[in-house]
């Protein structure tokens, strides 16, 4: 491990020292500086204030700032740890760290649980899963009758809800995911391993010297 010191600098509100962030996350200092290049692009796309607003998040995901999507909004809300309606750089890095290929599986399972626990009750309820299925169908061309949706829910809960209380608790979720690892596929972003290659300009903007 190197020894770092940061040069004094002027940054937008919400900026956090890469050295401090590296000690809290799976990322190296260089990777965090590369992520800052990405963050600057996203956070200046609609309102140039150094913070990611929901419209900017949607624009980055869908190339459309007005496209409403239940899941993208849930991801945004989970990234927005301070719940002030915007994502600052520290929140961006800490949340993305969960998606790193080297992040603990337990963190990924926990993040997905929070994502699907729409009402933040500590349980994934059958009604929530139905709401998510309907939202998914509305964004695709797939059409399923209510009977088919109920059959899918029956099958899913028969497998996941082992104590039969019509809701999935954290432990049931962990066991279910371990039996169905493909459910965690989108919780890992291979890009995060090559982030310094994807954003090489971080080198020119680096404020941290390895001494």
């Amino acid at each position: 491990m190197g020894c770092f010191h940061s040069k004094p600098s002027q940054h937008a509100a919400g900026y956090e020292d890469p050295v401090a962030l590296a000690s809290d996350t799976t990322f190296s200092v260089s990777e965090i500086e590369a992520l800052y290049e990405l963050f600057k692009k996203i956070s200046s796309s609609v309102i140039d204030d150094g913070l990611i607003h929901k419209e900017e998040f949607r624009l980055a995901l869908f190339k459309n700032s007005k496209k409403e999507n239940l899941f993208a909004d849930r991801v945004f809300d989970l990234f927005d740890v301070k719940r002030n309606g915007v994502i600052d750089f520290g929140e961006f890095v800490r949340s993305l760290s969960v998606f790193h290929p080297n992040a603990p599986l337990e963190d990924k399972i926990d993040f997905a649980f929070q994502l699907y626990d729409l009402r933040r009750t500590g349980f994934i309820e059958r009604e929530e899963v139905k709401q998510m299925l309907i939202a998914l169908l509305s964004e695709s061309d797939m059409k399923l009758s209510d009977d088919v949706i109920e059959t899918i829910l029956d099958k899913t809960f028969a497998e996941a809800d082992t104590n039969n209380d019509s809701r999935i608790d954290k432990e049931e979720w962990q066991n279910f995911v371990l039996r169905n690892p493909s459910l965690m596929k989108n919780m890992t972003l291979p890009y995060l391993k090559d982030i310094t290659t994807a954003f090489p300009s971080f080198v020119f903007n680096s404020e941290v010297e390895d001494v």
């Binding site: 990405l38 692009k41 996203i42 796309s45 980055a60 995901l61 869908f62 999507n69 239940l70 899941f71 993208a72 909004d73 849930r74 991801v75 993305l96 998606f99 994502l115 699907y116 899963v129 998510m132 299925l133 939202a135 998914l136 964004e139 695709s140 088919v148 059959t151 899918i152 829910l153 099958k155 899913t156 497998e159 996941a160 279910f176 169905n180 493909s182 459910l183 596929k185 989108n186 972003l189 890009y191 982030i195 994807a198």
Partner: peptide
Amino acid sequence: NPMNAFELISTSQGLDLSALFEEK
């Protein structure tokens, strides 16, 4: 042969954050 609900849900475009890394 119905799929499991979460398999379907996990295909949502809103959950695919790799789009964040596409060239802007």
